[in-house]
Amino acid sequence: MISGSAAGRAVAIAEPLETGIAYTVPQAGVTVESIRVRTPEASGRPGKQPKNIRQRVLRRLRGLLIEKQGTESRVAFVENDQPIQYYLPTDRLRMSGIVAQNQPFEMDEVEIQVNDGVPIVGYRFRPSARPSDSFVDSIDLDEERKQKRALIFKKFGKAKS
């Protein structure tokens, strides 16, 4: 059995595919992690051809987890500097370690082609930071709201019922 990382080796990444499908330009610096290739001898199935797996990233979206709502999670993708909110299956995020509120992540849309078969599109999630990387971020209020907050502290700080 031959095994090992395919990054930059036998697996062709970002090779143009001659299928007539319009693809986006792949992004630089993308590698495929831990693909295993099994030889015909080791597989025990005579006559089976070695797989030629080609994989490339079609696009990469950046996002953040807003909140988990049971089996679905509310996320925001940032596209053209605008957040677009989406529901995604919670399991897909959780299995990739995206579990904390506000945790940032990347989602790659990946095209995979095995031998000369029809390319299929899949998605790969990757947290951009671990839950333990979080820090407390203070919301900066403008001057008018700072004054309102001072008024709130004055009124509600003493008037408890």
């Binding site: 940032v78 930071a129 979080s134 820090f135």
Partner: peptide, 11 residues
């Protein structure tokens, strides 16, 4: 007026 945040491009 405080929130958990992360060092990232979407901060």
């Amino acid at each position: 007026t405080e929130t958990d945040n992360y060092p990232s491009p979407v901060r």
